[in-house]
């Protein structure tokens, strides 16, 4: 199926050392992920012995039934869903404003939106922490959501504005010209055209939120999202097998939708997927 090497590639061949270093770098990137899967099945409960003494499936049901794990998982999902919804609304509005209108400070908008993702996470985190302290805001579920939504906006914004820019400029005008008002134009023309971009943006925002630790550390108080729970398990390992399995689940929950999103983006040949 994967047939002959394509003819359009370079006629010269990569030298052996180059090929080996490239393969080495790829292995370096991927072996650790394989190990996560391997350790989910080890019988070793108290250490990270390699090679595993034996393999077992018994941890998987145990991990899934673990209530602490379940609680954090549900909290994380709720945060991610709400942050994604907020990011979708804010990101799409911002993209529409920047695309459709000319106004003073337009350039600054995209710069401001990308800041929370571009500056080291700790800056965003401690900044929010200091606002919480300065204004005596109590830590709640909502402080986490607000923090997450803030750095998720930019991925939605990037995807949507990229789609706008690739669409024909006059499509909206054409629709109005043919008798559709703004709402009809949005429903019949704009939405179908940015639909996949919204979908890709939503998936990216969701996994960004689902994985986040650094900002969350500063906005969560005593609540634990799944990544924070794993982090605390690493600091003081109490239940290694459960942590191993959870780690594997997290990889599956985030990596699969992302591969799906990449496909959407690739199919509609939309360049930008957000930078992180």
């Amino acid at each position: 199926m994967r047939s002959k090497p394509s003819a359009e590639s370079s006629n010269e061949r990569a030298s052996l050392p180059l090929t080996l270093s490239a393969i080495g770098a790829l292995l370096f990137l991927h072996i650790p992920l394989w190990l996560i899967f391997l350790y989910s099945f080890t019988t070793d409960e108290s250490a990270y012995t390699f090679p595993p003494p034996a393999l077992t499936l018994k941890w998987i049901p145990q991990a899934i039934q673990n209530t602490a794990m379940q609680d954090t998982l549900f909290l994380t999902l709720r945060v991610a869903v709400l942050a994604t919804v907020a990011a979708l609304i804010l990101g799409t509005l911002a993209a529409a404003a920047v695309y459709r209108f000319d106004f003073f400070g337009k350039e600054a908008i995209s710069f401001m939106l990308i800041l929370p993702l571009a500056l080291p996470g700790i800056v965003t985190g401690i900044a929010m922490r200091s606002a919480i302290s300065l204004l005596h805001i109590p830590f709640t579920f909502w402080t986490i959501v607000i923090g997450h939504a803030t750095f998720c906006v930019v991925v939605v914004y990037n995807n949507v504005i990229a789609r706008f820019r690739r669409s024909s400029n006059s499509m909206i005008e054409a629709s109005m010209d043919l008798g559709a008002n703004s709402f009809q134009t949005f429903w019949h023309v704009v939405l179908p055209n940015i639909g996949t971009a919204l979908m890709a943006g939503a998936i990216l925002a969701f996994s960004l939120s689902f994985d986040e630790v650094i900002v969350t550390t500063f906005t969560a108080g005593n609540q634990q999202t799944l990544p924070i729970w794993i982090f605390s398990q690493m600091l003081k390992p109490r239940n290694r097998p459960i942590t191993n399995v959870t780690a594997m689940l997290v990889v599956l929950i985030t990596a699969l939708p992302i591969m799906f999103a990449q496909r959407i983006v690739a199919q509609t040949s939309d360049g930008e997927g957000g930078s992180k």
Binding site: S170, E173, M176, H188
Partner: peptide
């Protein structure tokens, strides 16, 4: 009047067909 209330129609330079 906004475009949708005018009895005129336009053929655009880039055609502006709805791709979907």
């Amino acid at each position: 009047l906004p475009p949708y209330e005018r009895p005129v129609n336009t053929v655009f330079q880039d055609y502006a067909l709805f791709p979907h």
